[in-house]
Amino acid sequence: MCARPAGRSTDSAPATRRAVARRARVALAHHVTAVRLTRRLLETAEFTCGLMTKPAPSWLRA
């Protein structure tokens, strides 16, 4: 059994874990790319998305 800090409810634990995970992902992205991800950068960035179908294996093509 682990002790909980005083004043901390169990309801905030999942939210806290999500917040820590989000900060860790941003820190990893910064470390890997050397680009500081800021709110302004993400809000003003333009994204291009695409969709590609997976080609059928050669033995299915007749």
Results as ranks from 00 to 15, higher is better:
P5H: 12
M1H: 04
R40N: 03
C2W: 00
V20C: 05
C49E: 11
R23V: 00
S9P: 12
R40F: 00
K54N: 13
E46A: 09
R40A: 06
R61E: 11
A3D: 04
V20E: 11
T10M: 12
R22L: 07
G50E: 06
G7N: 10
P55Y: 00
R23G: 04
M52C: 14
M52K: 15
R23N: 06
A29G: 03
W59Y: 15
C49K: 13
A56E: 15
P14H: 08
G50M: 03
S9K: 13
C49W: 15
A29I: 02
T16P: 02
A27H: 02
L42P: 01
R18E: 07
A62C: 10
R18Y: 08
L51S: 11
A19Y: 06
V35E: 12
C2G: 07
T10E: 14
P57Q: 14
H30W: 07
S58Y: 12
R61D: 05
L51M: 13
A24V: 00
A62Q: 15
V35I: 09
E43C: 08
R4C: 06
R36K: 12
L51Y: 12
P5K: 14
L37M: 09
R39I: 00
T16C: 13
S9W: 09
E43W: 03
T48N: 10
K54I: 11
H30M: 07
V35Y: 11
T44P: 01
E46R: 14
A15R: 13
H30F: 07
R39D: 05
C2R: 05
L41V: 01
A56Q: 14
V26E: 03
A62K: 15
A34C: 08
A29D: 04
R18F: 06
L41F: 01
E43A: 14
P57G: 12
W59C: 03
L60P: 01
S58Q: 15
L37I: 05
A29W: 04
A13K: 14
A56I: 03
A19P: 01
R36Y: 08
R18H: 07
P5S: 12
E46F: 05
A21K: 11
H30Q: 10
V32P: 10
R39N: 05
G7Y: 08
E43L: 11
A24I: 00
T44E: 02
P5L: 12
V32Y: 15
G7R: 10
R36E: 13
R8H: 08
P14M: 07
A34I: 00
S9N: 11
L41Y: 02
T10P: 11
A27Y: 01
H31T: 03
V35F: 13
A3W: 06
R23Q: 06
K54H: 09
